[in-house]
């Protein structure tokens, strides 16, 4: 953790919840982080299935995490024995336990996550050429597949929990990875065990990223007083209270918050100073010299003002007598 005087060894391998937390503390939470476990040797040799799912897409707080899990097709029975289920259907304790089982089976399973920071989500959604959350999500899934390919995984079949209409997404992934079987489905996290495992990795990593969240904008005494900020879902009263209590009139919120969410925007419109951004197109609205033809028949008392030279216009230079 930043500001921690104890020199910590950089975590290379996440093998349980403890090392996961240490790893998360070592990341700059305003940026994305990417982690991939070691790949079981047999997964490089024999055909594998690979599942992909996400956690934290909806909430106004914290990172969105994309997770993947992989194992040999022949080990399906062993995978089923772990009793992974849709992460949302499990209690937090059960998820944490299953996560440790997944990490603790390096000869059976490989797994990886991309932690997409709230700041990175806002920056994408509020960029000039809008980069939608759907696209961010797909690109993250694609990144995980590429990382598995690069690590030498012998992929046979990829199962993905869908973002939007499954047919379109599946066709898109197939166009990028024509050599793999790809199944994109709704509720894949409860249908396919390998997607369940991926969803557990993603969900546990997101939950712990929140639990160790280091508010870089606050001094330690403020950090300690923050306490709980809730689930991050707009309806959660704890989250609502957090958004009210930690709103800065000028800057809005700490970087934990996704500014691009309607909930955050509405709250800022109500309680923070109004901020106006420069127009996307700075071009003048009516073309210069475009005078209505009828104007030539009207008498005008206005004196003709000579237009400023282009040099000044291009530099926003004006004569100011009042300010």
């Amino acid at each position: 953790m930043e500001g921690n005087s104890v020199e910590e060894v950089e975590i290379q391998c996440i093998s349980n919840l403890n090392t996961l937390k240490q790893y998360l503390c070592q990341q700059d939470n305003s940026e994305n982080a990417f982690y991939f476990s070691n790949i079981p040797e047999k997964c490089k040799e024999f055909p594998c299935i690979l599942g992909i799912d996400e956690a934290g897409r909806g909430p106004v707080l914290g990172p969105m995490v994309y997770g993947t899990a992989l194992c040999c097709v022949n080990d399906s029975a062993q995978l089923a024995a772990l009793e992974c289920a849709d992460s949302k259907a499990l209690t937090e304790e059960k998820r944490d336990k299953l996560f440790e089982t997944i990490c603790g089976s390096p000869d059976l399973l490989g797994w990886g996550v991309e932690i997409i920071s709230p700041n990175s989500i806002c920056n994408s959604m509020l960029s000039r050429t809008k980069y939608s959350l759907n696209q961010v999500s797909m690109d993250s899934a694609i990144g995980l597949i590429r990382a598995a390919v690069k690590a030498g995984v012998n992929i046979e079949h990829i199962y993905v929990d869908t973002v939007g209409p499954p047919e379109k997404y599946q066709a898109y992934l197939l166009s990028l990875f024509p050599n793999f079987k790809i199944t994109v489905a709704k509720k894949a996290d409860s249908t396919y065990s390998i997607v369940s495992a991926a969803s557990i990795c993603a969900k546990v990593v997101r939950d712990h990223a929140l639990s160790v969240w280091d508010f870089q904008e606050f001094k330690s005494n403020v950090k300690d007083s923050i306490g709980n900020f809730g689930s991050g879902y707009p309806g959660d009263p704890v989250t609502k209270k957090f958004l009210t209590d930690y709103c800065d009139m000028v800057f809005g919120y700490p970087m934990l918050v996704r500014f691009s969410w309607q909930t955050a925007q509405t709250a800022l419109d109500k309680s923070a100073y109004l901020v106006e951004w420069e127009d996307e197109d700075e071009e003048p609205k009516t073309p210069a010299g475009n005078t209505a033809i009828t104007s030539f028949f009207k008498s005008t008392s206005k004196s003709i003002v000579r237009a400023k030279h282009d040099f000044f216009i291009k530099r926003n230079l004006k004569n100011i007598v009042d300010f």
């Binding site: 700041n119 904008e217 000028v250 800057f251 970087m255 100073y273 106006e276 951004w277």
Partner: peptide, 20 residues
Amino acid sequence: IPCKIHADCDAKVSQYFNTY
């Protein structure tokens, strides 16, 4: 910065901005 903040006041620039 390329926007207009409708306020004239002190701002916690080092906390919220310089940090990042």
